[in-house]
């Protein structure tokens, strides 16, 4: 089937199999490989992207469901070479080690901060429950989210 998706501000139309997942559309059709696949079962959140501004796990969304809608991946966050505040906060707060979860974490936090620009630590944790990290023990990720909120305010 034919799907048209606005990906990081660029319109993209492609003929894809009906069952194609959004994450494979992004990685294999659009060539945007920052969005990682960690589990295939909607458990880990590494594939989190924004669909019309809200975070979704793109391994659980069909490309067809994104037809006519806008998708933002971590590649679309930085503007003019300037990192998004959440990206910068991850970098500065050592919010990553292997970094495989990072694109999904960053997108989940971007979405969280849109809904709640001044979250408490508990709200950050509740908002990231669906994103697994195996390296960091999460504390520096929480610090990064809170630092990004601080910068944005």
């Amino acid at each position: 089937m034919k799907v048209s998706v606005r990906v990081n501000g660029h319109d993209m139309t492609a003929d894809v199999e009906d069952r194609m997942l959004l994450v494979h559309f992004l990685r294999d059709v659009a060539g945007l490989t920052a969005t990682n696949v960690g589990c295939d079962t909607t458990s880990c959140g590494a594939c989190t992207v924004l669909l019309d501004g809200e975070s979704v796990k793109s391994c659980t969304v069909l490309a067809a469901q994104a037809d006519g809608r806008a998708v933002t991946t971590v590649e679309g966050l930085a503007g003019n070479g300037e990192m998004h505040p959440v990206q910068r906060a991850f970098h500065e707060q050592h919010g990553l080690q292997c970094g495989f979860c990072t694109p999904g974490m960053v997108m989940a936090i971007v979405s969280l901060l849109r809904e709640n620009p001044h979250p408490t630590e508990e709200q950050v944790r509740a908002g990231l429950e669906g994103n697994l990290c195996r390296c960091t023990g999460y504390h520096n990720i929480v610090r990064a989210a809170l630092a990004a909120a601080e910068v944005a305010s």
């Binding site: 945007l32 490989t33 920052a34 969005t35 991946t73 971590v74 590649e75 966050l77 930085a78 990192m83 990206q87 910068r88 991850f90 970098h91 500065e92 050592h94 990553l96 970094g99 990072t102 694109p103 960053v106």
Partner: peptide, 12 residues
Amino acid sequence: QRPDGRQKVTGE
């Protein structure tokens, strides 16, 4: 900061 940190947060 990690030298690979920028690449990892931007998806590069």
